[in-house]
């Protein structure tokens, strides 16, 4: 039987319109064989979590360059818990200083990728994640 494709929601939360990274990653992951949905801009945490549940995704990837990461990641985690969707893995990328990263990792956020990351590194990360399960 063919293995089910890993389904990923790439999301752009908040008011920031810098979507170059989100789009490049979405396309790179699609080319690497994942099933990818992109939310488009200006999403609230509520909208993102709702889309993730409706679309039955395995992973949410947030792209944040605006500095609002300490508000948005915890809120998405909280909503996932509230809606009983803790099976969905949350990771992200953008401009997130190391000390903030540590705090977010402790809350249960998956890997946070820096600018300059190769798409192949993200692919490897996601593949490993689902191999373990």
């Amino acid at each position: 039987m063919e293995k089910k494709k890993i389904k990923i929601l790439i999301a752009k939360p908040g008011l920031d319109g810098h979507d170059r990274g989100a789009k490049v990653v979405a396309r790179g992951l699609r080319d690497a064989g994942f099933e990818v949905i992109y939310t488009g801009l200006h999403q609230t945490p509520e909208m993102i979590v709702n889309t993730a549940i409706q679309e039955d995704v395995d992973v949410i990837g947030l792209s944040i360059l605006s500095g609002a990461h300490m508000t948005i990641f915890p809120e998405v985690l909280r909503l996932l818990k509230e809606k009983g969707a803790t099976n969905i893995h949350l990771f992200g990328g953008g401009i997130i200083p190391d000390e903030d990263k540590e705090k977010l990792y402790q809350l249960g956020v998956g890997k946070l990728f820096d600018p300059g990351t190769k798409i192949s590194e993200i692919v490897e990360y996601l593949n490993n994640l689902f191999k373990e399960k």
Binding site: G14, L15, D16, T44, S66, G67, A68, M70, T71, I72
Partner: peptide, 21 residues
């Protein structure tokens, strides 16, 4: 960002972004 999008600092969408960028 809130200002760039024509939103006041107390708009619900502005949370976490006031004075940041």
């Amino acid at each position: 960002y809130p200002t760039l999008l024509g939103k006041d600092s107390d708009d619900p969408m502005a949370k976490g972004e006031v004075g940041v960028c």
